[in-house]
Computed example of a mutant assay.
Amino acid sequence: MMDRIDCKIRFSLAGTATLATFLAAVPVGTAVAEDVAALAPPAGGATQQEIQQFCTSIADPARDQRYLLQKQELEKLQAEVDQRIGVLEQRKAEYEDWLKRRNDFMQQAEVNLVEIYKNMKADAAAPQLEKIDPVLAAAIVMKLPARQSSQILSEMNAEKAAIVAGVMSSAADPTTSRDPS
């Protein structure tokens, strides 16, 4: 209905408007333009009936063209949303991978092994923990009571103790991510 009213107003204002003027004012594609050109009123003074017939004839093609443009815009937006969902799924997978590695890390220090170090003196445990993998040493130290852990770290070589403490702090930080962005 709006297409017909718009068409009538445009022709009324222009009086003897040409088809080119009308086509410039209405958003139509090439296929629709060919349909409209075939239905065009005669050049010069068009009668009210001819204008009515012309406006009625092009209303559906013009509406279809607008719907097509809206559909294309929606498809473009959907593609952008799908891309963003893909990025979020990738980050979720990275987080799940980090969480799995963290849980595996915490399980490395088996209860029996922790119990062995729990019963050792700090000056005896420190040299042994210096020689094993820093990740495993950090897992063991994390499962010991805080007082005993601090004594063991103070007995260790400063460089090795710093590495173990660094592993412990990164394992305990829930905000750790490989991609800061």
Rank of each mutant, 00 (worst) to 15 (best):
L153E: 02
R101S: 14
M142C: 09
G44Q: 04
W98M: 02
L113M: 14
A33E: 15
D64F: 06
I51C: 12
V81D: 03
P180K: 08
G166P: 10
S170W: 02
A20F: 09
Q151D: 13
E130I: 04
A124Q: 07
E96T: 05
D97N: 04
M142W: 04
M120N: 07
F11N: 01
E130R: 06
E159Q: 10
R147W: 11
D82L: 03
D133P: 00
V26S: 06
I51M: 05
F22Y: 12
W98N: 01
R178A: 06
P145A: 07
Q65F: 05
V81H: 11
A139C: 08
L74M: 13
A46Q: 04
A38R: 13
L69D: 07
A172C: 04
L68W: 09
V167R: 09
A122Y: 00
L77Q: 15
R66S: 07
A139V: 14
Q128A: 11
M120K: 05
R101N: 11
D173I: 06
R91M: 10
K118N: 01
N157H: 12
D179Q: 15
D35G: 02
W98R: 11
Y67M: 14
S150C: 08
Q70I: 02
Q107Y: 14
S154D: 07
F54A: 15
A43N: 11
S154M: 13
A43M: 09
L13C: 05
A139N: 04
T176R: 14
M1S: 14
L113K: 09
R91W: 10
V111A: 07
K160F: 05
A162Q: 08
A20L: 09
R101V: 02
A109H: 01
Q128Y: 01
M168Q: 15
C55E: 02
K160G: 03
A137T: 04
I163Q: 14
P27C: 08
C55D: 09
E110V: 06
